[in-house]
Design a protein around this nucleic acid. Structure first.
Lengths: 238, 238
DNA sequence: GTCTATAGTCGGATAGAC
DNA sequence: GTCTATCCGACTATAGAC
């Protein structure tokens, strides 16, 4: 790599380090990523890390906050569509289901489609495995929002109160149908071959998730009525 | 910790190191776990690691292989129940669904119930995030087996051929409903409080997953018929 | 703001006494 | 088999030249 003292590198150093951080922190975690590897990957001097971010941890937090903003903007439209439908008291089943289809499509696309989504979900998984001080940035800033929207949507479709424990757990299970393709991506890719799923795969996953959610909604029967009154056990919506 | 030169420590050193490895590798990954931390956690001398396992990587592989054996034995009965039902050509829908319920209950219990299951799934997640040379031990030895059984079961219930891509992807999505409670456990526990889910939570999750799988089976409609003929894109059953 | 050089610490593995 | 002592490399962060 060439020297970076030219014009475009002057204010670009932070960005280059954050890009490198997204990749390497996702792959190896914070603890196993060395500042040397980060500097090398970014094509930047090692000392730029403590200088710009106060250290490795500071870079990690900066990467987290930036990436959350990006991803939230990507899923935002899908979430808003659902919230709009739920906010309309006269919205019928068809309207709610249409919003659900949009949300599933958005989530599959955002989670599985874009290349940097891999690093993002890797970091999310790292935080679930061993939460750091930055865990709440993800939890409150991203996961709880998405889970809250699914909870509202399913609450309307299933006729369950928003605080119902069963509802919140069901929202998790429904999301799991999509999330597993992210979580198990390495296993899937190992056999499919290649760096990412094809568009045909993504379309199939999208349709099949939509169809299964429709079936779940259509075939709903209460599973644990005795827990229906419990509330506050899971995080609140957005 | 007391000296361990007494009788019960002589052949126990390997076991103590593997226990410590399961915990620490799961929490921090191989790269971020130091041999010193392992030796301290195990109450064992540092030199025991290269001596008994040839090094840190050797200990990791030993932990993987041992834990897979344990976990496979735990889910084995549930898997066998399903395989038996599927092997019987005259097995009716009710019989297949009964086997499905047993399998869901077994998986939820094994994944979420036992305390060491947390470390096991943490290591599985680490391998999905950044596969090491030991990835196939998990993939072929555990995941592919479970996924293969679900594929067979759903194939019978949905009337899809075992090689169907849609079927294999659906098996993943169905498993995702259970897996997400493992993957997202940190977020769930953070709000529930405590070290593990209560029995009431586990029972609710079990019932709700069973009910949703039943709904999916009852409400099935082909989602991507044009991909029905594709085969070999995902790993084979057991 | 970016670099080199270096301080101070911790990493994994080994040699050799017991 | 288990221990102590130690090598040597890699780590993060900082000081100071430019």
């Amino acid at each position: 790599m060439k020297k970076q003292t030219t014009k475009n590198a002057e204010k670009e150093t932070r960005q280059r380090l954050m890009d490198a951080g997204l990749r390497l922190f996702g792959l190896h975690g914070v603890g196993a990523t060395s500042t040397r590897a980060l500097a090398l990957e970014a094509g930047v001097n090692l000392s730029a890390i403590p200088y710009h971010f106060g250290g490795k941890e500071g870079l990690y937090r900066a990467v987290l906050e930036h990436t959350i903003g990006v991803k939230l903007a990507e899923v935002g439209p899908g979430l808003d569509r659902v919230l709009a439908a739920c906010a309309n008291p006269s919205a019928g089943r068809g309207e709610l289901l249409a919003a659900m289809r949009t949300l599933v499509r958005t989530m599959v696309t955002v989670m599985l489609g874009s290349p940097e989504s891999r690093s993002f979900s890797q970091i999310m998984m790292q935080e679930q495995i061993a939460p750091t001080g930055a865990f709440n940035i993800f939890h409150d800033g991203f996961f709880a929002k998405v889970h809250g929207v699914w909870t509202q949507l399913l609450g309307r479709l299933l006729g369950l109160p928003p605080e119902s424990l069963e509802l919140r757990l069901r929202a998790l299970a429904v999301m799991g149908q999509m999330v597993i393709f992210r979580v198990g991506m390495s296993g899937i890719l190992r056999v499919v071959g290649g760096e990412k799923l094809s568009d045909a795969h993504l379309e199939c996953i999208t349709r099949l998730c939509i169809q299964q959610v429709e079936a779940i909604v259509a075939g709903y029967e209460p599973a644990c009525p005795e827990l229906g009154a419990m509330s506050g056990l899971l995080e609140g919506a957005q």
